[in-house]
Structure formats: C-alpha cells, structure tokens
Simulated assay, not measured.
Amino acid sequence: MKQWFGSAAICINERNEVLMVRGNDSDRWAVPSGGIEIGETSEDCCIREVREETGYDVRILEKLNVKEIVLKGFEVQTHYFKVEKTGDSAGINDPDGTIVEAAWKSLSNLHDLDHMYPEDMQTILGCSDLIIG
C-alpha cells in the first residue's frame, strides 16, 4: 500500500478561535495541513503549510499526536502540532491552488461546522483552554 506523510497545525488565537482552511472543491473545513517534502522535517512541513495555506507565520509550541488512517488506498500518517501565529497574514499563497479560504472559526461553534476530518475535533478542542459544556 502506498504511504503518505504529512503535518497539520492547530493554531488557536486569544479569542478562542481556531485557524481553518477550505478547499476549492468543498464546503468542508480543516486545519492547515499538507505533505512532507523530501528533506523536510514534520515541523518544517507544518510551518510551511500554514504559511502557504493561510499566510501566517507560526512557531511550534508542542507536538500533539500522530494520526494514522487508511484513506483512498493510502496509509496516511499525519503529525499534529500546536502552533502560535507570530504576525499578521500575508495572504494565501498555496502553490497547489487548492485552498480558497482561510478563516478563524470559534471553538464554541466547532460542532456546527462541516468538517473535512471530523476525527480532528478532539485534537482541536484538546488544545484549547475553553470549557465547552
């Protein structure tokens, strides 16, 4: 089976909003993520993907987990990092041309969003100090 390795970023701001992106063929939202390139660490990939997909520079705060699933015939391994933005967005500059929108989504409304990867909800909420009852 083919393998794919990637990184994903969970970035939560001071207003308890998480940075999410939407692709051009979908109404579903996901955290910024992408494939690890040759010679790149999972950390480097995470930082690059956030910059390309959202325009934000980020720094990694901690490694969260590694999600391993089989998707469309691929063994997928995605490294999740908690990150923090270090400035304002320079705008989306996605070389793949797949990301059309980046937005801050309120954690309290996270359940109402249409998610590309619903299993990421626990990871996202686990990064927040917000208590959602």
Rank of each mutant, 00 (worst) to 15 (best):
M1N: 09
Q3K: 13
W4R: 11
F5L: 11
G6K: 02
A8G: 15
A9F: 11
A9C: 12
I10F: 10
C11W: 10
I12M: 03
N13D: 15
N13R: 04
N16L: 01
L19Y: 03
M20Y: 01
M20S: 03
M20Q: 00
R22P: 06
R22K: 15
G23N: 13
G23I: 05
D25T: 09
S26P: 09
D27G: 06
R28I: 06
R28N: 08
W29V: 05
A30P: 04
V31D: 05
V31H: 02
V31A: 06
G34W: 09
I38P: 04
E40W: 08
E40M: 13
S42Q: 07
E43S: 10
D44I: 10
E49T: 06
E53T: 07
G55K: 13
D57L: 12
V58K: 08
R59L: 09
R59G: 06
R59T: 14
I60M: 05
L61K: 14
E62A: 10
E62W: 00
L64P: 02
N65E: 08
N65T: 12
N65K: 07
V66T: 15
E68M: 12
L71C: 10
E75F: 07
E75W: 06
V76A: 06
Q77R: 15
Y80G: 05
Y80K: 00
V83S: 12
E84C: 09
K85N: 01
T86Q: 12
G87M: 02
D88C: 00
D88M: 01
S89I: 00
G91L: 07
N93R: 12
D94L: 04
D94I: 11
P95H: 11
P95L: 09
P95S: 07
G97A: 09
G97N: 07
I99E: 04
V100Y: 10
A102Y: 15
W104V: 01
K105L: 15
K105Q: 08
L107F: 03
S108Q: 11
N109M: 05
N109R: 13
L110T: 02
L110D: 03
H111C: 08
H111D: 14
H111F: 12
D112H: 06
D114A: 11
D114N: 02
M116G: 00
Y117I: 11
M121S: 14
M121G: 02
Q122A: 15
L125P: 04
I131S: 13
I131P: 02
G133Y: 13
